Computed example of a mutant assay.
Amino acid sequence: MKLYWKYVVILFKSQMQYRASFWLLTIGQFLVPFSVFAGLYFLFERFEQIKGWQFQEVALCFAVIHMAFSLSECFARGFDYFSAMVVNGEFDRVLVRPRGTVLQVMGSKFEFTRVGRLIQSLIVLIWAISRLPVEWTAPKAVTLLLMVASGTFIFTGIFILAATLCFWTVQGLEVVNIFTDGGRQMAQYPLQIYKKWVTRFFTFVIPFSCVNYLPLLYILDKAPGNGLLYMLSPLAGVVFLLPCLLVWQVGVRHYRSTGS
């Protein structure tokens, strides 16, 4: 982790060499998601509720998933740019260094401008919390933090799987965006509103349901049965990340230099 934070400091200093560009991009990342949130607002302004879910409740879903995506984009963006490392032969140099490949690839790229989107999501989160009639307790606060952390792990795991495909395809595949950008758009609503097969897929395969829907039932006191299971459901994000790392190791062992 000491080396990882050195990567963070070095790349942050390099991006701050062009401060005007950095702050303009950050402001853009702050403003653009408001158009998405505006669409959410006008949807509820027209229909008032969706399958029993109120605007404030869905706003909390929106904030959590966008915060998680922003954090993953910021600190795990190296995997999203991994195809360039393979094409240019940069990964060959990574393999001969005395540190893990995951650490080096993750530390190769940071998108600090995503802090703009993170701040926007935090504003929505604070607004939603202030409007929800929820009696907040320590377990509920911990659950909320786990939701954000779990979402970050899930998006990072998807980035890792997409990068692993580059060992065989060399170039990244746009189809993976279905599960990153598409997953973000889908998970900003409670999964209850979708078809059952969609809910099952995003519960047992890619556990977005464990990020927003199941723990949200616990926070809103809507969870049937044992609430502890709903509270701990975000831990599925860690469970999802572990096999992604194993798949990455398989890809590394089968890697053959591109000859670049």
Rank of each mutant, 00 (worst) to 15 (best):
W197C: 06
A76G: 14
V134A: 07
C74T: 15
F155G: 01
F112M: 07
D181C: 08
F204E: 03
S35K: 13
G251F: 10
Y189V: 02
V252N: 01
L3M: 15
Y81Q: 13
F155Y: 11
P139H: 09
L228C: 15
V176D: 00
L242Q: 04
V170A: 04
L241R: 02
G157Y: 00
R131C: 09
I129H: 02
S209G: 15
Q29C: 08
F208S: 04
K196E: 08
Q17C: 06
V102N: 02
P215Y: 01
L242G: 07
L11Q: 08
A76E: 00
K140L: 07
I219Y: 01
G107Y: 03
I126N: 03
Y213T: 14
K51T: 12
A59C: 11
V142L: 09
V205T: 06
F34I: 12
T101A: 13
I129T: 05
P224K: 12
T180L: 08
I193T: 04
A138M: 15
S72P: 08
G100W: 11
K222V: 10
I129Y: 02
Q104V: 14
V211C: 02
V64F: 04
R97N: 11
D181I: 13
T26I: 04
S260P: 09
P215T: 03
V86C: 02
I126Q: 03
Y255L: 05
C74G: 07
V87A: 08
G52A: 09
P133L: 04
S130I: 11
L31V: 15
F44T: 05
F75I: 04
G89R: 03
A138C: 12
C61E: 02
F155E: 00
G39V: 07
K13P: 09
S260K: 07
S121N: 11
F62C: 02
Q49Y: 09
A223S: 15
V175A: 14
I10F: 12
P190H: 00
I219L: 10
Y218G: 00
F79K: 02
W5D: 01
V175L: 13
A223E: 05
F34H: 14
L24I: 12
Q54R: 15
G116L: 07
R131G: 10
L122T: 14
S108W: 07
T101R: 06
L241T: 05
L191M: 11
R99W: 12
F22L: 01
L71Y: 03
V247M: 08
V58R: 00
A20C: 06
E135I: 09
S150A: 12
T164E: 00
A149F: 13
S70D: 02
S21A: 12
G107M: 05
A138N: 11
F30K: 06
I119D: 03
V247L: 12
I123E: 04
F208N: 02
F153T: 01
S14C: 06
I154N: 00
N226T: 14
